[in-house]
Design a protein around this nucleic acid. Structure first.
Lengths: 123, 123
DNA sequence: TAATTGTGCTTATTGACTATACACAATTAT
DNA sequence: ATAATTGTGTATAGTCAATAAGCACAATTA
């Protein structure tokens, strides 16, 4: 389980955890059906409260990415390809719109926006 | 002065104000040297506390976008073209990186990312 | 049966955000 | 000069999200 939390990033710890697990599930790095580590262990390893890890797990369950079996543990859901693709698409849309919206508000034209993205990807 | 605040957007009111004014200054919609409306008036018009407007103004001053003259008012700074371009570029970089970073974490390839942007811009 | 794991609950602290209200200082308009 | 306008400074306070520690309980697993 690859996890890291930056305390002073401005982003709440539970959200950082949630985003990282989400990306790992949607990218296939975490396979469907595989178990997540126990919350107490995760809390100890990354140095946060159990509450914080649970908040992240709750959010993941609300998103339909994991299932909880009390007494057993939490597991990544097995997602069919169509649903997986839809979720990946949904996850990328919000930051995409934030970017294009900001860029347009700043007066950038469409071709400039494409150029900015291409340049960023080259780095 | 074009301003609107969505109370339940999750984004703090002072930040919404700050972002809108920033975009209007960097896009040229607000000309350099032109006065901003009095904070009491802005507060009343958009239905927030004076403190909230001041927080936004403070942030704008910290960013070097406006100047304050006590007793007179606040004015958009006159920015030379080079500085203006640098600030526009800086303002667009953060959401750009958030987007490309998220997309890559989700396993999208560079050409897919460009395609996503192009599609979003078509809307 | 014992260990492990998630749940539910209480209590508490910290900080960001927002709000009201008043007195004060600097500038501008009359 | 005088009054009105504008920003400043300060005190007080309420709400909420986020985080934390601790404990008892239930379900599963070894």
């Amino acid at each position: 389980m690859r996890l890291s939390v930056l305390p002073n990033s401005g982003v709440p710890a539970y959200k950082q955890i949630c985003e990282q697990i989400t990306a790992q599930i949607l990218s296939g790095e975490i396979e469907g059906g595989s178990p997540l580590p126990p919350i107490r262990l995760v809390a100890k390893e990354i140095g946060v409260s159990i509450i914080t890890v649970r908040s992240a797990w709750d959010a993941l369950e609300a998103e339909g990415l994991i299932v909880t079996r009390a007494g057993s543990g939490c597991y990544a859901l097995e997602l069919d390809p169509g649903r997986l693709e839809a979720l990946r698409r949904k996850a990328v849309t919000e930051p995409l719109r934030a970017f294009t919206g900001t860029a347009r508000n700043l007066g950038f034209g469409d071709s400039e926006i494409i150029a900015l993205v291409a340049e960023e990807l080259r780095k």
